[in-house]
């Protein structure tokens, strides 16, 4: 389909050809088979998680179009989903996306201070990425971890009962691994099938 009529202020269009490796494709097909015949669109959320992780950390228009073709749906069906859910990113993010919970229970156990501390140390505001491209800071809502607040996720891994000291230590560790995969980090790919 001709999709250059559709645009969105946050969309990234790179005109790159994107494709999964055969190994990933196999997973995608296995995922599609979990839903009844003709309902392969159901696999959209898990496939977008995999796409975001395997194809560069965010969903460009090229990637969304590619996913649409895999699931045999219209590109707009992918766009409207990608723009709805907070875990999908539409533009380039830092190597580490730090998502700090800002909701009530965390806020009353020190969450506001953790966010302020991160802003001070990284010298960026929520929504921004450090100039070296290593950290993106984001505020998110309740992460279902309110008993161990303050809480944040870094690339969807939980870090709980935070203190400014713990945050400093973690940032140091992360910087050390910034050019490779941090040990212990798990992928969406390995979860399914």
């Amino acid at each position: 389909m001709q999709n250059n009529v559709i645009s969105h202020p946050q969309f990234t269009r790179e005109g790159k050809k994107v494709a999964f490796t055969p190994e990933v494709l196999e997973k995608v097909h296995c995922l599609m088979e979990r839903y009844p015949e003709g309902r392969q669109k159901s696999a959209l959320l898990p496939v977008l998680h995999i796409a975001q992780e395997e194809l560069g950390g965010y969903l460009s228009v090229d990637i969304m179009d590619y996913v649409a073709s895999l699931l045999d749906i219209q590109p707009i069906e992918v766009y409207e989903v990608a723009t709805f859910y907070s875990m999908f990113y539409l533009g380039k993010m830092g190597t580490y996306v730090i998502e700090v919970c800002r909701t009530g229970p965390c806020a009353i156990s020190g969450g506001e201070q953790i966010l302020a501390h991160l802003q001070d140390v990284l010298e960026i505001k929520p929504g921004e990425t450090t100039p070296d491209g290593i950290f993106t800071l984001k505020e998110v809502e309740c992460l279902g971890s309110c008993g161990t607040g303050p809480v944040m996720q870094v690339n969807t891994e939980y870090y709980e009962k935070l203190t400014p000291g713990k945050v400093d230590k973690l940032l140091e560790d992360l910087k050390e691994y910034a050019d490779r995969n941090k040990p212990g980090e798990s992928t969406w790919m390995e979860k399914f099938c």
Partner: peptide, 29 residues
């Protein structure tokens, strides 16, 4: 019986049962 795990993608509203079903069908919640 087959059981499958289906992940959401960050939307509180998908806990509401009909939004959840929409989401499970691959749509906005």
């Amino acid at each position: 019986l087959e059981i499958y795990v289906h992940p959401g993608a960050g939307a509180y509203i998908c806990g509401e049962e009909t939004a959840l079903l929409e989401s499970l069908e691959g749509k906005r919640g």
